[in-house]
Design a binder for these strands. Structure first.
Lengths: 237, 237
DNA sequence: TAAATAGTGTCTATTAGACATTATAGT
DNA sequence: ACTATAATGTCTAATAGACACTATTTA
């Protein structure tokens, strides 16, 4: 049989196939703490529960998995996050009562400001402080995905400046350090942090300064290659 | 509508769903080089081409994605690899002529010895030297997946002892070092490597020695926590 | 004894931690 | 001047690189 004959006879409905969704753990930093975007489900299963933004692929719109998850996020936040990364794919027989189900899950970061207006006007989407999320029941295995995303981001705080994508630009260096400290759950030596930032050469000094109690702090933006930069040595704290 | 009513009316065939496969990039180390397990396709599309071992989920057998990919590997090698890790999930409209398609791809490592007999008897499965694989046409986007798996393994050679899972136990320390050197494409200072191995405390000294030209080398096995151990500092070479 | 390979000793270079010190704002 | 916060100076500790040296085998 030639490939042409094979394709002419091919029936995509002939094989049983699995439920496939994309989801995103979208973090931001606001009020000195990490927050994660959750949406309240308007359909079964888990109707009324909070869960991760995400959903089914739309074969008409979506060229790829990443386009699909970005579309889902854009529907809730009206913007495309400056950082997104595949977290993991979770698939098994038990996670969805409808049957064998798979989610391709992403971790994303964005500033709180960038989408605050849209979030305020969408009653089913809300930034949840991470500590609170651990206390409420979530849809599916979304709690597990959030924990895993947070662990990975904590690791990145040790060897990259990726957490900076959770800030609104321009930001101060102490602000960036504090995001890292919140992720690590420990203080960082300011001198160590500054040395690394300087060596990495990932921040653009805007020349502006921000003052609020004390000496004014320089304001920076992230260079675009911050997403891929890795320090050779971890912070040890 | 209650959830029970929703599920009673739920038709899994009602929604268009995507082709979903699992694939694995299985590496080993033999004859001083990295090899990857490929299988020759016996079906359209890419009939006759070499590609990654993998395939569709079997909802009767497979409880999870990882079980599915392990089953596929076991069919070819007759053993379960001692190391497996999710690499990435690749999904888009163009990778398969049959339509929107998704693969959940894993990286795995195992010793060459452990499955040599089975491979020899299965005419459609073969260990390919990695250099050769880059020269031949592969099915789908499998070349891209192999490259990505190799890059990730190279990174792991800098901050872990994971590449050791590509060796047959017991192995010598110079053998382990050489796997790392092949991955990095550069020599490593023996002293640096030994210091790190000692500090990590991941090797079990069997008390045995192997001699072939020169001073006999101690023989080691990997502790089970080698898969998750990370050095704080990368090798710099 | 020579060659080959395994394994050690030791010095230097780099960089994180610790913490004292200086700088620049508001009150 | 005093307080608060930002930013720097500088010493110590840990560890990777470099490379000379010792150890144990076969031929």
């Amino acid at each position: 049989m030639t490939e042409a004959e094979y394709l002419a006879n091919y029936d995509p409905k002939a094989f049983k196939s699995q439920l496939l969704t994309v989801d995103a753990v979208l973090f931001t930093y606001h009020d000195q703490q990490l927050k994660v975007l959750l949406v309240q489900r308007s359909n079964h299963p888990f109707l009324g529960f909070w869960g991760l933004p995400g959903g089914f692929i739309d074969e008409h719109c979506d060229q790829s998995l990443e386009e699909a998850v970005l579309r889902k996020l854009q529907e809730k936040t009206a913007v495309v996050p400056p950082y997104i990364e595949q977290l993991c794919t979770l698939g098994n027989r038990h996670r969805d009562v409808r049957g064998w189900s798979v989610t391709v899950c992403y971790t994303a970061l964005m500033s709180y400001q960038a989408c605050q207006i849209r979030i305020d006007s969408v009653s089913d989407a809300k930034w949840w402080p991470l500590a609170d999320v651990l206390q409420i029941p979530l849809a599916f295995d979304h709690l597990q995905l959030i924990k895993q995303a947070r662990e990975r981001l904590t690791q990145k705080a040790l060897y990259s400046l990726v957490p900076g994508f959770a800030l609104s630009e321009p930001f101060t260096l102490p602000e960036l350090q504090h995001v890292h400290e919140v992720l690590l759950g420990k203080p960082i030596q300011g001198k160590s942090f500054r040395r690394r930032v300087e060596q990495a050469d990932l921040l653009i000094d805007t020349g502006l300064k921000r003052t609020e109690r004390g000496r004014p702090a320089n304001l920076y933006r992230l260079k675009s290659d911050t997403a891929s930069y890795r320090f050779l040595r971890n912070l040890e704290c």
